[in-house]
């Protein structure tokens, strides 16, 4: 799967699952500051990623994920 395909899927999840405005979702968008995803929301996001991409994500892998782009790259590397 290409990076931009992963991004589109991530965007879809954010809109569908979390109710976030699609215009706000760019590769540079910060999860906490720009998209207002708090610590509980991050857990939901990870669950949604795991279901959508049929992968498992460990907590340690999330340490450096602060933007949509970083999340997309993590997912892309695991596929």
């Amino acid at each position: 799967m290409e990076v931009n395909e992963v991004f589109e899927k991530v965007k879809g999840l954010f809109v569908e699952e979390l109710g976030i405005d699609s215009e706000k979702i760019t590769m540079d968008a910060k999860l906490e500051e720009d998209l207002e995803i708090d610590s509980l929301g991050i857990v939901e996001v990870v669950m949604a990623f795991e279901d959508e991409f049929e992968i498992e994500i460990d907590d340690e892998e999330l340490t450096d994920v602060g933007t949509v782009g970083q999340a997309v790259n993590l997912l892309h590397s695991k596929l």
Binding site: L40, G41, V43, E44, M47, D51
Partner: peptide
């Protein structure tokens, strides 16, 4: 248990 919503408690 891994699919319980993180919002369940709150």
């Amino acid at each position: 248990s891994k699919r319980i919503s993180p919002l369940a408690i709150t």
